[in-house]
Design a protein around this nucleic acid. Structure first.
Length: 851
RNA sequence: GGGCCCAUACUCCAAUCGGUAGAGAGAGUGGACUUAAACUCCACACAGUCUGGGUUCGAGUCCCAGUGGGCCUACCA
C-alpha cells in the first residue's frame, strides 16, 4: 500500500460504485425500505460548504441504512425555476434556460467528487418539461377538486419592471432592482385553498414526533389559530351600506373597557370615506408605510377620526368614535377592532396620543384601581379581579372571562364565538417567464378553461427576449394566442407562471417515479413514501415545509398519493451552518476591506496579509461572499480529498449546531486519515501467523466501537460517532494482538468509517481482503457479550464526596456490595467512627454512604 | 414585544435514568527522530461546569431567578 493519495483513489472508487450500480434504488418486497432526502439545491452554479455538510449528513444515513439491509432511495434534483435566471438574462444577456442547465452541469460536476451515494438515474430539474408538465396535470386535477380559485388581491407592483414583488423585495417602498416607487395594485391571481386545511395542518403537527419542536412551533404560530368573538357595531353617521361595522376580538371580556373603534386604511369603509381629502391623504400615507423591520418597529401609531360613531353593544347610551388607524391590518379578522387601551399596549399608545379614555376592566387580584402607566396584559390563565366585567364585579381567569363573554354575546344575540386563522390562502401567480406555466386558457365565451391533459406540458417558449421589462410571455403572440380547448374560438393563454414553492412542494413524491407519464405511480409511491428522513435548513421551517404538507394532502385528494403520505416527512432534521472567521483591514477612508482565508497568514498571535499588514480577526459567522469568509469545497477536495471535507464537517460540533471551519481542523483531519492509512499498511504487512497479546481486549474494543458508532449515527450524533472512531483508531494502533484479530479490527474500522469517508474505507477494505465493495458490505453487529465487563469498579462516596473505590463482580447482590464497601479501609478512615445513617447502592454505578 | 437554542479546560466539543466531570479534536509544553527544520512518534499539563437560590444521599444534568451570546418571528386585535 503506497501513500495516501485521495486524488488517486477517490475517482476510482466512485467509478466502481457507478459500475456496480451500488446506489440505484430498487423496490424489493423482501426488504424494508428507507427513503432519505436532503432539500434539493437551487442551481446557483457553485456548491458551498453548507451543501457539503447537508449532503454528507444525508449520505451518512443513506450509506448506513444500505449496509443495514434496507432498500434505500437517496435521490437528488434541482430547484431550477426562479428569478435569478431571469435576472442573469436581463443583466448579462443569454437565456434563463441555458443559464440554468449550464449551472446544473457545473454544480453537478462539483458535487460528484464528494462521492455521495445518490441514485443519479432519478435526477430531475423542476424546469424539465417532464416535471412541470406533471405539475400542470395536478393543477388541473386540483381545479376540478375545488382546491384552486381566482380572486383579486392587492399586490406590490413594480411599475418599471412591470412585475409583482414579494414583500422582501420591497425596500423602503421601492423595488429592489428598479428602485421605482412600488404601487399597491389589485390583480386577479390564482390561489390554492390551503386555509381550508388550517385546522388539520395545525392538529397534525402533534403527530410529527420526529420533527424539531422548534419547527412545529413555528408552523403553529404561522397558522395562528385564535378563538374570539365577532360582532357588529351599529353605526351613526356612516355612509350608506355601512350601517354595521363588524369587528373581531380575542378579548371580548374587555368589551366594557372599549373607548374607541378603529378600522384598517384598507377597510371598505375607509375607501368609502376617501371623498374627504384629509382621509384620502391619511390613507395614502398609511399605505406607503415601510416594510423594513426597523420601520415597523419605530413606526408611530397614528390615526384619523372619521366622525362616525358606533353604539356600544352592551350599553346603547355609550357612543364610541371610529378612527382609521395605521396599525390595523385588513388581512386579519375583519379589518376592524374595538380599542381597549387598558389591556392592549397598541391601543394604549394610541389612546394616550389622542387623549382617549383608558378605563380598566380588571386589575390584579387584590389590587385596587389606579391610573395605568402602560397596558395591563396578564396571561389569560391568570386570575384577575374584574371591576367592569360583562356581569359586573367578579374574580376569575381571563380564559373564563372570555368564555363567559362569548356565551353572553351569543345568548343576547349580538355576536358569535368564532375561530380564526392567520394562515391565508396561497397566492401562486407570478408575472414571470421562468416558472411553470399555469395551464389554463381565457376564452371570451367559455371563461377560464383548463388546457386538455393530452396537450400538456404547456411548454415555455424558447424564443423570448428580456430587453424589455415585464413578462415576455405577455408579448409572445404565437404562444399566447391559442384556440379555446372547449369551443375552439380564438382565446388567450394565462401568461402567469407558478410560484417556485409549488415546484418544491411535491418533488419528494416525483422521485418515487421520476420518469412516469403521470405525476406519480401508485405502486412506487406506495412502496417508497414516506420520506423517512428529511434533512435541510431551518430557513424552510415554515413556507416550504407547510406547503409540502398541504400539497401532499391535495395529491391524496386527487389520487396521486396514498393516504399514508399526507404527512410526507416522517422525520425532519435541520442542520447547523458552516462558519468561518472573518478577516478585515481598513482602507484609507476607514471603510472595512475583507480578505479571503487563503490570502491571510494565521499565527498564534494574530493574522497578517502576505505583505505583513496586520489583519483584524472577527469571530466566526456564517460564510458569506460579501464578508469573504468562504472556503470553496472544490479547493478543499483538490487539496485534501473529499473524505477530509466530509469527515471534518461532521466532526466536533453536533449536527444541529454550527460548525466552525478552520484550516488547522481540516489539516488535522487529513493527518488522521493518513495515520489510518499507515496503520492499515502496517497491519497488512504483519505475518499471517503472528500470535500477539490482548486479543480479547481488542475484540472488546472493536465491539464497543461498533456499538458507539452505530448509536452515534442512528441518534444523529455524528460528532460522537467520529470521536469513537478516533478512540478506536488509537486503541488499534497501540494493540499488539494476533494478526487475524488485528485484520478483523481494521476491516471493522473501515466499515464503520465508510459512511463518513467512503473512499479510504474502500481502499482499506480491499487491501485487507474484504469481500466485494465496502459500501455494500453488511453493517457489523456488536456481540453483546463483549460489551459487558464481568467486574466493575465502583466509586464510593461518603456524604456525596468520592472517597474510595472497590472492584466487584458486576452482578454482586446489593447486600454484599454494602458489606464490602463498609469494610473498606478508606471508608472506615473517612467515617471516623460516625454511625452510618443510610447506604445507597446503584448497581454497577456507585455507592454512597450517608453518615 | 413574543418564542427557541446555547454557556463545561486557551479553543471546538463529550459526559445514557441525576451517580467517579474528559470520549475526541485543535492549540500549548517537554522529549525522540533530524546537521537543522518540517513531517512523524511518545509523553505531559490544562476546568469543577456563566451567576445566585432550591430539590436530593448525590446536580454539568431537574426547578426558580438572573447574566451573556446566537437564531427565528412580530402592530394578528
Amino acid at each position: 500500500m503506497s501513500r495516501y493519495e485521495p486524488s488517486a483513489i477517490e475517482p476510482r472508487w466512485q467509478q466502481a460504485w457507478d459500475e456496480a450500480g451500488a446506489f440505484t434504488a430498487r423496490m424489493d418486497a423482501a426488504k424494508p425500505k428507507y427513503y432519505v432526502l436532503e432539500m434539493f439545491p437551487y442551481p446557483s452554479g457553485r456548491i458551498h460548504m453548507g451543501h457539503v455538510r447537508n449532503y454528507t449528513m444525508g449520505d451518512v444515513v443513506a450509506r448506513t441504512k444500505l449496509a443495514q439491509g434496507y432498500a434505500v432511495l437517496h435521490p437528488m434534483g434541482w430547484d431550477a425555476f426562479g428569478m435569478p435566471a431571469e435576472n442573469a438574462a436581463m443583466e448579462r444577456g443569454g437565456h434563463p434556460q441555458d443559464w440554468t442547465y449550464g449551472n446544473i452541469a457545473d454544480m453537478k460536476a462539483q458535487m460528484r467528487p464528494l462521492g455521495l451515494s445518490i441514485d443519479w438515474s432519478r435526477e430531475l430539474a423542476t424546469c424539465d418539461p417532464e416535471y412541470y408538465g406533471q405539475q400542470q396535470a395536478m393543477f388541473i386535477d386540483m381545479m376540478e377538486a375545488g382546491l384552486v380559485y381566482r380572486k383579486a388581491a392587492v399586490v406590490n407592483w413594480d411599475p418599471v419592471d412591470m412585475t409583482v414583488l414579494a414583500n422582501e423585495q420591497v425596500i423602503d417602498g421601492k423595488g429592489w432592482r428598479s428602485g421605482a416607487a412600488v404601487e399597491r395594485r389589485e390583480l386577479t391571481q390564482w390561489f390554492f385553498r390551503i386555509s381550508d386545511y388550517s385546522e388539520e395542518l395545525l392538529d397534525a403537527l402533534d403527530g410529527l414526533a420526529h420533527w424539531p419542536e422548534k419547527v412545529r412551533l413555528m408552523q403553529a404560530n404561522w397558522i395562528g389559530k385564535s378563538r374570539g368573538l365577532q360582532f357588529a357595531f351599529q353605526t351613526a353617521g356612516a355612509p350608506e351600506g355601512f350601517e354595521k361595522l363588524e369587528v373581531y376580538t380575542t378579548r371580548p371580556d374587555t368589551l366594557m373597557g372599549a373607548s374607541f373603534a378603529a378600522i384598517s386604511p384598507d377597510h371598505p369603509l375607509a375607501k368609502a370615506l376617501e371623498g374627504n381629502p384629509k382621509v384620502a391623504a391619511f390613507v395614502a400615507e398609511a399605505r406607503r408605510g415601510g416594510t423594513s423591520a426597523e420601520e415597523i418597529e419605530t413606526a408611530e401609531k397614528v390615526g384619523i377620526d372619521t366622525g362616525i360613531r358606533v353604539r356600544h353593544p352592551l350599553d346603547a347610551s355609550v357612543e364610541l368614535p371610529v378612527w382609521i388607524a395605521n396599525f390595523i391590518l385588513m388581512d386579519y379578522g375583519t379589518g376592524a377592532i374595538f380599542g381597549c387601551p387598558a389591556h392592549d399596549q397598541r391601543d394604549f399608545d394610541f389612546a394616550t396620543k389622542y387623549h382617549l379614555p383608558i378605563p380598566p376592566v380588571f386589575v390584579a387580584e387584590g389590587a385596587g384601581e389606579a391610573p395605568l402607566a402602560e397596558a395591563y396584559t396578564p396571561m389569560k390563565s391568570e386570575r384577575v379581579h374584574y371591576l367592569r366585567g360583562i356581569r359586573g364585579d367578579s374574580v376569575m381567569t381571563g380564559d373564563e372571562g372570555v368564555a363567559q363573554a362569548i356565551a353572553i354575546a351569543e345568548d343576547m344575540g349580538f355576536g358569535q364565538g368564532v375561530t380564526k386563522f392567520r394562515l391565508r390562502d396561497w397566492g401562486i401567480s407570478r408575472q414571470r417567464y421562468w416558472g411553470c406555466p399555469i395551464p389554463v386558457v381565457h376564452c371570451a365565451t367559455c371563461g377560464v378553461v383548463p388546457e386538455k391533459k393530452e396537450n400538456l406540458p404547456v411548454r415555455l417558449p424558447y424564443d423570448v427576449s428580456f430587453d424589455k421589462p415585464g413578462n415576455p410571455l405577455d408579448r409572445h403572440p404565437t404562444w399566447r394566442d391559442v384556440p379555446c380547448p372547449r369551443c375552439g374560438q380564438p382565446a388567450k393563454r394565462e401568461t402567469d407562471t407558478m410560484d417556485t414553492f409549488v415546484d418544491s412542494s411535491w418533488y419528494y413524491a416525483r422521485f418515487t417515479a421520476p420518469r412516469a407519464p403521470t405525476p406519480t405511480v401508485p405502486h412506487d409511491a406506495d412502496y417508497w413514501m414516506n420520506v423517512d428522513q428529511y434533512i435541510g435548513g431551518i430557513e424552510h421551517a415554515i413556507l416550504h415545509l407547510l406547503y409540502s404538507r398541504f400539497f401532499a394532502r391535495a395529491m391524496n385528494v386527487t389520487g396521486h398519493l396514498p393516504s399514508k403520505a399526507v404527512e410526507p416527512f416522517n422525520a425532519l432534521f435541520t442542520q447547523g451552518m458552516v462558519t468561518h472567521e472573518i478577516y478585515m483591514t481598513r482602507d484609507a477612508q476607514g471603510r472595512p476591506v475583507y480578505h479571503l482565508p487563503e490570502d491571510v497568514i494565521r499565527s498564534d498571535t494574530g493574522a497578517t496579509l502576505q505583505d505583513g499588514t496586520k489583519v483584524e480577526v472577527i469571530p466566526s459567522a456564517k460564510m458569506s461572499k460579501s464578508k469573504k469568509n468562504v472556503v470553496d469545497p472544490v479547493n478543499i477536495i483538490t487539496a485534501y480529498g473529499a473524505d477530509t471535507a466530509r469527515w471534518f464537517v461532521m466532526s466536533d460540533s453536533p449536527p444541529e449546531r454550527d460548525v466552525e471551519w478552520t484550516a488547522a481542523g481540516a489539516d488535522a483531519t487529513h493527518k488522521h486519515l493518513t495515520r489510518v492509512w499507515a496503520l492499515c499498511s502496517r497491519i497488512g504487512q504483519m505475518p499471517a501467523d503472528h500470535m500477539g497479546e490482548g486479543d480479547d481486549d481488542l475484540r472488546r474494543a472493536t465491539a464497543r466501537a461498533i456499538d458507539e458508532v452505530t448509536r452515534g449515527i442512528e441518534g444523529f450524533a455524528f460528532n460522537k460517532a467520529i470521536a469513537a472512531l478516533y478512540a478506536f483508531t488509537n486503541t488499534l494502533s497501540r494493540a499488539t494482538a494476533s494478526t487475524p484479530v488485528m485484520k478483523e479490527a481494521i476491516r471493522t474500522l473501515a466499515k464503520l468509517m465508510s459512511p463518513m469517508t467512503p473512499h479510504i474505507a474502500e481502499s482499506i477494505w480491499s487491501y485487507q481482503g474484504g469481500a466485494g465493495l465496502c459500501a455494500l458490505a453488511q453493517w457489523p453487529k456488536a456481540d453483546p457479550a463483549l460489551l459487558v465487563d464481568d467486574t466493575v469498579t465502583l466509586p464510593i462516596q461518603i456524604n456525596g464526596k468520592r472517597r474510595a473505590e472497590i472492584r466487584v463482580a458486576k452482578d454482586l447482590p446489593v447486600a454484599e456490595v454494602e458489606k464490602i464497601a463498609l469494610a473498606n479501609e478508606d471508608v472506615q478512615h473517612f467515617l471516623a467512627g460516625q454511625p452510618v445513617k443510610k447506604i445507597i447502592v446503584v448497581p454497577g454505578r456507585i455507592v454512597n454512604v450517608v453518615a
